[in-house]
Each structure stands twice: as structure tokens, then as C-alpha cells.
Amino acid sequence: MQKEVRILMLENSEEEAGKMLDALKDSKLVYTSARTSCGNEACNYIDSFRPDIILASPSPAIDVIDALRQCLKKTPDIPFIVVSDSVSEEFAVEALRSGAFDYIIKPDLSRLPLTIKSAIQQRRQENSRRRHEVLLRHQNAELKKVNRDLEMFVHSTSHNLRAPLRSVLGLIYLSRQELAAGKLDNLDQYYGLMENSIHALDDTIKLILDYSRTKQLVEEVEEIDFERMFEEIFNNLEHINSPEAITKEVTVHPGRPFYCSRMKLYLILLNIVSNAIKYYDPAKERSYVRMQVRRVSEQAVIEIEDNGIGIPLELQQRVFDMFYRATESSEGSGLGLFIVKETIEKLGGTIELSSVPGLGTTFRLVIPNYVSSASV
């Protein structure tokens, strides 16, 4: 079906405007038109009428060159055709130099239909070219980001994998030295340090695999049982920082069933809760991690609050960067919150962080409900 062309006419005479429209009768051009006899009103018509093309006739009431410049300043891609009573080479040159698409003489309007069609086609081609340029720039920017992330990923991952291995090798060497000397007092300590290094190595490998899955796997949505998911998360984190000393509180408010990619949501919550447990404050008499979920028809709002060591304000903007550690005491890979942000963005959600050093940290997640997708 042919798209309707919206023609704005800057013409002082209704009769002359009718002649221009008559010239379009046999062109099979589908159009609607509007007319103004005041050149200064052209820009207002661009907002209200939204023309695809402008036909302008010079007259005492219409300064075509001025109207042309104003219209092109407001909307540069609208074709502007000057339709004049007489030939003036000087005027025609000025109009074309000012940005007019073409210059037509009224006594010979036979060229008007073809000129309009050519102008519309050229505008569509230009718009298509611009869209492709924008898409190409976006893809290039994404590619540069991927390359930067890959370089950082390879560099930092090699360090995160080698550091625990070097630590284990060093401890094995010390253990052999102690055994050779008949000393057994420090072996238990060495074994504990080895175990911590192996856990750190295992955590890094798990996060690398998680990151790979979020990049590649397309998972169908399913209804989320938040209570069960949090229970699985706590069971999965039993080896971290004596979690039995941390009170876990889960509140899931009644609401509409929530649908989402279970694996992606699990990775998000696992990494946030893991940080809350890792960076608890041992100086506090009572440590806690509180999870609260509110579900509405279009989204779930999830808040995870702890009273751990907190994050300084000047570092809070960087905690989602790849391999960034907000504290020198961190033994993590620096990948967890990076994966969280990347995964939330894939789900079309948002994440906010508020933290006060010494008091604790709260993450607020807003995740879209994919209930419509699940019911199709």
C-alpha cells in the first residue's frame, strides 16, 4: 500500500495552489495537502502538519529564501521545491544554494509530479542511509567495548587464576620443608590457607563460566519461586565466612506471579548475596542480610540489605566495573557485580546501590515481569 505524502504549500493564491494540485492528478501520487499564505508560519506547520515535502511560491507575503532557511534549520531533511511564476536565474541559483531541492516554473508544471516523487525517494534513501550509519556506529562502539573488555578479561583472569595457584605451590613447599624438619605445628594452618586459595580459584572459574553463560545462553522464562531461590543461594554459599553467624531474613510480599529467566535471575541474586556475606562486619554483635521482594503486574522490586562494612561513596560508581575491587581486603575476583549489571541490562532491568561505610549496603533491583512472554 502506497504511503500518503503530506504536502505543505506556501502559496498566496488559492487558485495557484489548485493548479499545482491539478498537475498531480494523473501522477497516481497519494497525498494530502495544507496551505498557508504566510511564509513565517511555515515552521509552525512543520510541527502541526508534519509535511513530507514543501512547495513554495515567491510573493510579497512569502519570502521564499527566508522560509527555506528557517524550515531547513528546523528540519534539514524536508525536501523544499520552489515553484515560481517566472524564470530568474539569479533567484534560482540562490534558492538552490540555500538548500532547495529543485526550481520549477509554473507555466510548465508537468515536471512537478516526477520532482516530488524523486524528492521523496531521495529523502527516504537518505533517512535509510542515516539509520544504517547510526546502526554501524553503534555496532562499532559495541565491538570496541567487547575488545576492551576482552583484553581486560584476559589480563585480569590470568592474574586471578595464577595468584591462588602460586599461593598453593608456596604453601606446599613450606609444608614439605616443615615435614623434612619434623615440624608439624604449622601444617594445619598451611592446609587452611591452601583450602582458601582453592576456594578463591574455584569461585573465579565459576564466575567466568557464569559470565560465559549470560553471553551465550537464551533461556525460556519460568515462574520464579523467590523463597526457594534464596534458600538455594544460601545453601550454595555455606563455605563463605561462617554464614551461620549471619541472620538471613527473606520477605516475599503477595503479588502477581513473576516470570523471568531463572538462571539469569539466580546469578544476579547469588552474586549480590555472596558479597553481603563476604563483606560482613565481624565487629558487629549481630550481622544480617535482608531480602525483600515486591511483585506487581509489570515488574518485581527486589531489595537486598546488609549491615556489613559498606562501600565508600567515591568508590560506589566503580563497583560494577570489570575486575574492580572496592576494598583492599577483598579476596574476590572483581567479576561478580560486573556480571550482575550486565545480566540485569540483558533482562531490561535496573540496579541502584546505596551504601554507608560502617553501616551497610542496600541494592535495589527492578526486573521486568515476562509474564506475557510466558503465556504466549
Rank of each mutant, 00 (worst) to 15 (best):
I344P: 11
P254L: 05
R162V: 12
G99M: 11
V83P: 06
L267F: 14
H132A: 12
E219Y: 03
N40R: 06
R176Y: 11
T343D: 03
V168H: 14
A56M: 13
Y191V: 10
V30Q: 10
D306R: 11
E220V: 07
S330M: 04
E231Q: 10
Q177F: 00
V319L: 05
G332W: 00
K106C: 05
R262W: 08
E94L: 04
F101R: 11
A300T: 08
V146K: 13
H239D: 12
E89M: 05
L8E: 06
V371W: 12
T343H: 11
F153W: 02
V293L: 07
G182W: 03
I54P: 09
E328R: 14
Y45D: 10
R35W: 01
N196D: 15
K25Y: 06
L265S: 06
V134Y: 12
Y280F: 09
R213Y: 03
Q121H: 09
V250Q: 04
N307R: 10
G255Q: 01
T361N: 09
T350L: 12
L359R: 04
F101M: 09
Q70H: 08
D47I: 05
R137W: 06
L165M: 10
I116L: 09
Q216C: 02
A200V: 00
G18R: 08
D321W: 03
Y191T: 08
D22A: 08
N40L: 08
Y266L: 10
L21D: 02
A119S: 04
I302M: 08
P257C: 01
R364W: 03
Y370G: 04
N44R: 05
V87Y: 07
P254D: 15
K264D: 15
I120T: 02
L72A: 06
N140L: 12
H155S: 13
R137S: 14
L359N: 04
H159L: 13
L21H: 04
S372Q: 03
M322T: 02
L143E: 07
V146N: 11
R111G: 07
R130H: 14
S330V: 02
T327S: 14
M263S: 14
R325L: 10
C71K: 01
F101P: 06
T204Q: 10
F91I: 02
C260F: 01
R290S: 03
E133T: 08
